[in-house]
Simulated assay, not measured.
Amino acid sequence: MPQLDTSTWAITIMFSLITLFSIFQPKLSNFNFLPLPYFKPKNLIYSSYPWTLKWTKIYSPLSLPQHS
């Protein structure tokens, strides 16, 4: 059974990659990419709700003093 000659594989793969690069490079260089999105600050709208004017504190039942 004859042996498989692999001595030309490196050259074939190298030239295939060079060919693919030379084919796709002009296509990619002409492609128009979208610009990067930028942050648009939104105007904060403060509405007047009754609970925004009050300061409230919610106590956890475990933090309350123990009554004996």
Rank of each mutant, 00 (worst) to 15 (best):
L36Q: 07
D5Q: 11
F24Y: 13
L28D: 11
F31T: 15
I18E: 03
F24E: 13
L64V: 05
T6A: 04
L34K: 10
Y38C: 04
L20R: 10
A10P: 00
M1D: 11
T52A: 07
P41N: 12
P26F: 01
F39L: 09
I23D: 01
T52E: 02
S22W: 01
F39G: 00
W51I: 09
Q66M: 15
F31R: 10
T19D: 07
W9Q: 03
T6Y: 10
M14D: 10
P2R: 05
I45H: 04
P65M: 07
Y46T: 13
F31D: 11
Y46S: 12
I11L: 08
W55Q: 11
I58M: 08
N43F: 08
W55Y: 09
Q66E: 14
P37K: 02
S47R: 03
P35T: 03
W9N: 01
T8E: 02
Y46E: 13
K57W: 12
N43L: 14
S63P: 05
Q3T: 11
L36V: 07
I58A: 06
S22L: 08
I23G: 00
Y59R: 11
M1C: 15
I23H: 00
Y46D: 10
L17T: 03
Q25H: 05
K27M: 08
K42V: 03
I23L: 04
K27V: 13
P37S: 05
L20W: 13
W55V: 09
L44I: 13
L53M: 09
S48C: 05
L4W: 05
S22K: 01
L64R: 10
N32S: 12
S47E: 11
P37N: 04
K57Q: 06
I13K: 11
F33V: 12
L64C: 02
L4C: 09
I18P: 00
L36E: 08
H67L: 14
N32L: 01
L4F: 09
F31K: 12
P61M: 10
L53I: 09
L44P: 06
L44A: 15
W51D: 10
F33N: 10
P37A: 06
H67W: 11
S48T: 08
L62P: 01
H67C: 12
W9E: 00
I13N: 02
W51K: 08
Y49R: 07
S63F: 14
K40G: 01
N32H: 05
P61I: 14
P35D: 02
F39P: 00
K27I: 13
L36M: 08
L20H: 04
